[in-house]
Amino acid sequence: MFFQIVSIVFPIFGVIVVGYLYGRRRRPDMIATNQVNMDIFVPALIFSALVGRSFEFAEVRMIAIGGALIVLGSGLLGWPVARLAGCSPKTLLPPMMFKNAGNMGLPLLLLAFGDKVLPAAVILFLIESVMHFSIGTYWLGHNVNIWRLFRDPVFAAGTAGVLVSMSGVALWPPFMSAMKIIGDVSTGLMLFSLGVRLNTAPFAEWRIGAVGAIATPVTGMLVAWVFCVASGLSSAEKDVLLLFGALPPAVLNFMFAERYGQEPQKVASIVIMGNLAALVAISAALAIRLSS
């Protein structure tokens, strides 16, 4: 089991390490690269994944419900943790709720369980993104721009992919091949970019960072486990949700904290330390599922 877990986790963190080492030596400015990735490559990946399969919402309905409950449940469980840690709930709870479903979640679920879980992984990514841009934005800044959400390339690609798949329309195969080639760029680039960002991690706020690094996967997996037991899900659905619950905080949490002036240095420490500690949390989640 140990070697099976290592074989799943190593490629993810191997790419992150390469990004970290390159970033430490060259200090590249990844802003433009990340923008292109989120505007072009990730939407192409999501669109081609959804269009290339027969997509029925009924097939991923429980995954969608479970994902939403993991996000909300992590926030509820995190509230007393924030009080005990002596920090603002607006600082700790968003990183606990909104996970790294893009940079790490998509490639990790694909490597762990294969292409068959891609629709479920994409649905979780979309749900987490919608909740982050709506609930998260309103909570931090009391300002929700629904039109901006619909214009977001990732959300638009996911919506278009679902609609085309449900319509049964077959798109021109060369066009789909081009979408797949473009989309395949996104996975490695997301992980590489995360590694580069680790070089800018502020470790001064190590205490709150450690609290967030521990609380994020613990609360996420706990909510996922309770939902899986209560709902009688299939083994494959349990695999996806438990691993989703173990994911570390999304980098986007730091960007939102910086935008709204919500202790961005502390949030950055939570995000960075959470992603560093993800190797243990993800390995634990995989061990639980592989041993069951």
Rank of each mutant, 00 (worst) to 15 (best):
I182F: 02
S7D: 12
I40T: 11
A215M: 00
R197E: 14
S7C: 00
F203G: 05
N145H: 15
I272W: 10
I63H: 08
A178N: 08
S165W: 01
L76A: 14
A120C: 01
F2W: 15
V42S: 11
S7N: 11
Y20V: 03
S129C: 07
P119A: 04
V229K: 12
G52N: 01
S48P: 01
M179N: 07
D115L: 02
P249R: 07
T219H: 05
R26L: 15
L76C: 07
A230W: 13
D115W: 01
L243N: 04
F47M: 07
L290Y: 14
Q265T: 14
C87E: 12
V15A: 12
F41P: 08
V280L: 15
F244A: 14
P249Q: 07
W147I: 08
A215H: 02
M1N: 12
R27M: 04
N103R: 06
N37T: 14
L140N: 09
A58H: 10
V223E: 01
L189H: 06
S193C: 15
M104A: 03
M190Y: 14
T137P: 02
V162W: 06
I12D: 03
N145Y: 06
W79F: 15
G161F: 10
G114F: 04
P202R: 10
D184I: 02
L247V: 04
I214M: 12
I182C: 10
A121W: 00
A277V: 06
Q4P: 03
V130D: 10
